[in-house]
């Protein structure tokens, strides 16, 4: 088990093998420009796939996609939760307002039944437009 000499020269044989390894390490395998170009072309193709949405979508997925875009646009599900809570609070305040806020239903009823509203029925629109034209 040596370079064809005595077994006592095992160390020399091992050193010779190490020298061969060292020489092999000095010979790097540099890829050709063609190979590098081919690898980079593959990379570009994969990158374009990663950045492109699917061309065709199965029926029924469109509305889901719109919904996902809406949720994403408002900041994701946490923001959507906040939006839902604010909507519920607004609805509740509208139905049962606190004491310091005027009742919107009562205000609408008062306006629609007041003389101020009825007085507008007497305005002659043609006359009013005519005055605007003179000015």
């Amino acid at each position: 088990m040596s370079w064809g000499i005595a077994m006592s020269d095992d160390t020399k044989a091992e050193n010779n093998l190490e020298a061969l390894f060292a020489e092999a390490r000095q010979v790097p395998a540099r890829p050709s420009e063609d190979l590098m170009a081919a690898i980079l072309a593959d990379a570009a193709a994969v990158q374009s796939e990663l950045g492109t949405p699917p061309v065709t979508q199965p029926p029924g997925r469109f509305s889901l996609r719109i919904w996902q875009q809406f949720v994403s646009a408002i900041g994701g599900w946490p923001a959507f939760g906040g939006l839902a809570a604010a909507s519920m609070a607004g609805l509740w305040i509208g139905i049962s307002p606190p004491a310091f806020l005027p009742d919107p239903v009562e205000q609408i009823y008062q306006i629609s039944s007041s003389e101020d509203v009825l007085a507008y029925n007497d305005i002659d629109l043609v006359t009013w437009l005519g005055e605007e034209a003179v000015e």
Binding site: M1, S2, W3, G4, I5, K12, A13, E14, N15, N16, L17, A19, L20
Partner: peptide, 21 residues
Amino acid sequence: GKRALTKILAGRRDELGYSDV
């Protein structure tokens, strides 16, 4: 692997320039 390589290369010692080592 190293033992096998040493054995394979044993016969080529002079050819590979290691005769003076």
